[in-house]
């Protein structure tokens, strides 16, 4: 009996300045395959459907359990993590493309360092005095912890930026992930004391005002983070901060 097979089409580009080509691979079907397994199959036998020799596909992946955020790509038109994209659930042929809102490195691999850079610019950390023993941290209600925990699960995958109509060459919105992190740090008892600079960072170009409420972000977040709530909450915080610092000085 011939093995059951299926087709995977991959958008490939050696470098961002080189020509795009779509390659088709015919892979042997096994139960419970995901997109990562498809890419490994190709790496082991990098021959396209027409039989011509190609190279293993470049892509980012690490934990393979949807918690490191590395393997985000566009699978059948939707940005998602490749490790949880199960072949059984996907329409065939499966189409794989790199995220489009980040500089391309090669094939399915992109450079998302801008997100980490933006976490830096928005001062997303708790400024502790030092690592020496200063006793326990501030008390926190279980309710606050619950909200904070939901926000702190952001894996910086970039799906929310990919899907956002306000992230493109004409607009440099930081994206819901970063705004949501600002909310996280602004709600922490210590982080709250330093909310001002974070909010001010979100007032410049690319800041919170660029959000036009299309609310796509929340639909593609693999961690189910309440991003639209974060956007609204931080919008309110920025406004109050702006009004306060105008009338009372900062």
């Amino acid at each position: 009996m011939a093995d059951k097979t299926f087709i995977v089409k991959i958008k490939r580009q050696q470098r961002s300045d080189e020509a795009v080509r779509w390659e088709e691979y015919e892979l042997r079907y096994r139960p419970h395959m995901n997109v990562i397994i498809c890419l490994r199959d190709i790496a082991e036998k990098p021959f396209t459907r027409s039989g011509s020799e190609s190279t293993p596909v470049s892509y980012e992946a690490n934990c393979l359990e949807e918690i490191c955020g590395a393997c985000a790509m566009i699978v059948n038109g939707k940005p998602r993590q490749a490790c949880t994209a199960l072949v059984d659930d996907l329409e065939k042929p499966i189409r794989l493309e790199p995220l489009t809102k980040f500089p391309l490195i090669r094939d399915l691999q992109v450079d998302r360092s801008s997100m980490f850079e933006n976490l830096k610019r928005t001062k997303c950390w708790i400024p502790i005095d030092g690592t020496y023993d200063l006793g326990p941290g501030p008390r926190m209600s279980p309710e606050t912890q619950e909200v904070g925990y939901a926000l702190s699960q952001c894996i910086t995958c970039g799906n929310c930026l990919e899907i956002c109509p306000k992230v493109n060459e004409n607009s440099h919105f930081v994206g819901a992930a970063i705004v949501s992190q600002v909310r996280l740090f602004n709600m922490h008892p210590t982080g709250k004391m330093h909310a001002g600079p974070r909010l001010e960072a979100l007032m410049g170009p690319g800041g919170i005002e660029d959000c036009d409420n299309a609310q796509n972000c929340v639909k593609v977040c693999p961690k189910g983070i309440p991003l639209t709530e974060s956007l609204a909450a931080v919008n309110g915080q920025v406004l109050v901060h702006a009004v306060k610092s105008f009338f009372r000085g900062s």
């Binding site: 850079e117 933006n118 610019r121 930081v174 994206g175 007032m203 410049g204 690319g206 920025v238």
Partner: peptide, 17 residues
């Protein structure tokens, strides 16, 4: 993506207006 690339708050004010 350039948060605070320009520190100007003009864009914020214009957007809010």
């Amino acid at each position: 993506m350039s948060v605070a690339a320009a520190d100007s708050k003009t864009s914020y004010l214009l957007d809010k207006l």
